[in-house]
Design a protein around this nucleic acid. Sequence first.
DNA 1: TTGCCATTATACCAATCGGTATATAAACTG
DNA 2: CAGTTTATATACCGATTGGTATAATGGCAA
Lengths: 190, 190
Amino acid sequence: MDNRKIILQCALELFYKRGYDATSVQEIVEKAGITKPTMYYYFKSKLGLLEALIQEKGEPLLQAVCEVPMRLESFEGQLYELARLYMSFCRRERHFYFFMLGQMYSPPENEAHKATAPFIRKQYALITDTFQRAEGYLGNMNGRQEQFAIGFLGTINCYMMVYNEKSMENMLRDENIHAVVHQFLHGIYS
Amino acid sequence: MDNRKIILQCALELFYKRGYDATSVQEIVEKAGITKPTMYYYFKSKLGLLEALIQEKGEPLLQAVCEVPMRLESFEGQLYELARLYMSFCRRERHFYFFMLGQMYSPPENEAHKATAPFIRKQYALITDTFQRAEGYLGNMNGRQEQFAIGFLGTINCYMMVYNEKSMENMLRDENIHAVVHQFLHGIYS
DNA sequence: TTGCCATTATACCAATCGGTATATAAACTG
DNA sequence: CAGTTTATATACCGATTGGTATAATGGCAA
């Protein structure tokens, strides 16, 4: 099999379990069954390895989020579709998603944070656009579009954390997707 | 001044900026203007230093959260008081709070995560109790008390992240406290 | 003064860190 | 076949890591 992909996968699992800083290059190459120069041949540094990981695992999510408004006209429909998208992605790429989630809250001066920040900012920008386009439907948001985006993704992430501790199998059922969006739109009452 | 407290404060600022793993003992003692054996005299290890930090900075928050239901009868009043408490604490101990927030999402096998997990679990337990006691008011929650607790704290944390990037001065105004709890209870509509 | 105990520093440890110079093996190219 | 490129390993680098053995302070009690 392709050594490059093996390295990426092993690195992801170790980054997820131990974090970027705490994972040594030595551990990665041992797990991958290769040696250091091989890793430095494909990725010019430990940071380069992380960047490649973000690029190759993250791009499909950004692409999918991008395409949602092109397929759906209703604002609420877009929200449901986004929730479904994120939960589906999180189930498929669980280690990657929770690793990124952790980086989001990690110190801004951190090397790993800087590598992850653009990917996360792109997500927020796309979701903020979704609220921006709903201006006629939601009324005047007083520039709180980004706050809504953060709150929306935050609510989804809370749910995913809950399901992560039980099982993620049921998470994708329509009633659960509905519950997340409903909580964001209408709160826990009703 | 007390060297012990200087070490704790310097460690916190470095942990916040760079993360626990990426911060070396050498950096801490240099910033504190002392040498390594002094640090190892007060805290027997780097991990011991972190544990002392969590204990001494975190205990007041747990204590305050504990006392909320003793002072207030109304469920919604308790929620407002909790939101005010967290925002006030976050403003007073900003570096500590965001450091803990980052640890919450960090890998479970991580040494630093294990040290912070009990503190975070205690918080969730106390908030879960608040929802449990509101059973008569909220109706049957079908065992979703903990999910509500996670969602409630999650919503508050999202708001604090938003205010952290602007200014935290206005965060404590009554209308903002109200907005957070209202979003949790009634959603972004209404 | 004497002795004890709390506090701090000098100087060091083995282990590990990210990264590389160099050599080699295999595969493609002419 | 020879020459080049791609892919991999051995063996090493200086720097830094968390941690400590040892000794010197300083103040306080007897």
